[in-house]
Amino acid sequence: MDIAQIKRLIDLLAHAPIAELEAEEGGRKIRITRGAAQPVTAAAVRAPATRPVDAGAGASPRPQSAPMPEPVQERVIAAPSYGVLHLSPAPGAPPYVTVGQEVKPGQEVGLVEAMKVFNAVKSTQAGQIAAILVEDGTEVEAGTPLFRLA
């Protein structure tokens, strides 16, 4: 499975009313899930797996009975689709948002462009912009965290 195929799967998930998608090809399996804080995340795992795969490469096995720590859910605004990120509406114009600025749900905070198709990046929740995680003009994948909210 090549990058283009993975991108298509991510785009499919981004526009489909499903929470998770799993595909297998040539002994490699990919599972893409839609998270609460981050609309789309991708994680590739190698199949077949004889036991549940740990999240981090090289992580030591964890006894099944051990209590699982709660995952830290960062509040982020993620890229809605693949493309080049624009942090301002036009070249030379002020940015959509700056660090410290309060944003409302649905507020436009950026723009992703691919092949002259423009997709507005909108905040999914209220909060304060704590960090801008990607530089203007960077190519991003669907689901890439772009802003961290305080």
């Binding site: 526009h15 689709s81 002259k116 198709v117 423009f118 997709n119």
Partner: peptide
Amino acid sequence: WPNDLLLDGRKMAGILIETGSAGGIAWQ
């Protein structure tokens, strides 16, 4: 590329495509 239209080498038409979703339904 990708969709400006040139007439005798000069631009005569252009396209602006915007995309998004509303209530979980994709739109262009």
